[in-house]
Each structure stands twice: as structure tokens, then as C-alpha cells.
Amino acid sequence: MLELRLVQGSLLKKVLEAIKELVTDANFDCSATGFSLQAMDSSHVALVALLLRSEGFEHYRCDRNLSMGMNLGNVSKMLRCAGSDDIITIKADDGSDTVTFMFESPNQDKIADFEMKLMDIDSEHLGIPDAEYQAIVRMPSGEFARICKDLSSIGDTVIISVTKEGVKFSTAGDIGTANIVCRQNKTVDKPEEATVIEMQEPVSLTFALRYLNSFTKATPLSETVSISLSSDLPVVVEYKIADMGYVRYYLAPKIEE
């Protein structure tokens, strides 16, 4: 028996919007720790890891570990039927091949339940080792989204370089080139507007912009984003979900042949 009640149901709607472009089908794993997902895109270039900790739910009952295969486009269709202020409850019985999403309006005058068929998905779970990154950049998520969008109108790839001067995003295409430098800026009114660079050593990596643009679908989940870079590892782009967990995207770099 599984029953997860999330008062801030809009979070779940935003989570689906953040991952459905990258991944078509995925297993949602439910355990005592929380509600999680790990999935790669179809070309195995990017990976998304989601965690919503059990403590973040108003009610969290998960009698035993359960993995539920879902088509994310279909989940998104269901959740789009929930109002933005609705309380969302996810329910499933042991051994059932369906999951139910229940939507309650804030004043309890409307209750809807949507039952969705589950599917069998073969997916390999990858071990992601803890790593010390050469550089971690924290910046406003809207600013990062703007940079990725702007650069993708010029080129297909971005070189992200971190030095003590700041973080530089560079691209080149048929019509020309573009460089955007963001300097560390801690002297802002609100902490979420700051750009903070923690650098152990300079690092420069090249990535496909279309994946980064896809990651920025998570922008509504968090005011800030952190970008962790090391020369021999995929970049980690993390959006924290307040009090609950995170959506982390991993993107394999483009490397010299």
C-alpha cells in the first residue's frame, strides 16, 4: 500500500514539466526515504535524478519498496488536470497495475481521482559516486535559463569555463560567436540573486546546448541553480526543491576524439 499526500501539489506538476521533455518512460521508486526517480534520455547522454523526501509529504505511507513504471507524458496529462492550489495524493495498492492521482481543492469542495495504467520498464540504475568538483557555480536559475536560450540561437554547443575571474559561457556558429561572463556577485539584496563561484582549480568543458536547455524546464522549481564541474566528469545541474529534495541533471561532456 502506497499513499503519499502532498499539500503543495503544484510541486509535483512542476517536477513533471521539468523531466518529461528529457525522458519518455521511467520508474518512480518509492521507499521509506522518499519518492525518487533516476532515468537517462534515449541517447544516454543525460541523466535525471529526482528525490522528494518522505518528510516533505504531509502524509507518507509506503509499506514496502515499490517501483512504478510510468509514461511521463501521460503523468503530465493527468497532473495538468489538477488545479495549481490542489492537494495531490498518489495511491497504489501492492501488486496493482495502476496508480491513482487524487486532487483535492484547497477548501475540499472538489475531489477528483484519476487512475493511470502502469507499465513495465526495463531500466538500469546507475551508481553515481560522490565526487569533489573542481568548480561549483551557484546563480539565479532564470539567469542560467536565459544564457542557455540566448546561446542556442547562435550555436549548438557551449564551452563553460570557470576561472577566478568568473564563469564564461561561449558558443560559436555559422553567424558568429558569443561569450557571456558572469562574475561572482555576492553583494545583492537577496541571496537568491547572487552568483557564487567556489573554485578549487580552473576548469573548462564543452556541452550540447539542447540538453542544457531541456534542464532549464526545472527553473520554476527553484530560484537558484548550481552547476558542478570537473574535467573528467559529467556536469551536474541541480535545482533544489525547497524542504523536499532536488532535481539533478547529469550531462556527459563533448570530448576530444
Partner: peptide, 14 residues
């Protein structure tokens, strides 16, 4: 010329 690497090059099943 740079080639796109895959996540599975860096992370292994487990």
C-alpha cells in the same frame, strides 16, 4: 572535433 560522450562511460550500473 569533439565527440559526444555518454553517461554510461562515467557511471556504471549498481
Amino acid at each position: 572535433v569533439r565527440k559526444q560522450s555518454q553517461i554510461t562511460t562515467f557511471f556504471s550500473p549498481g
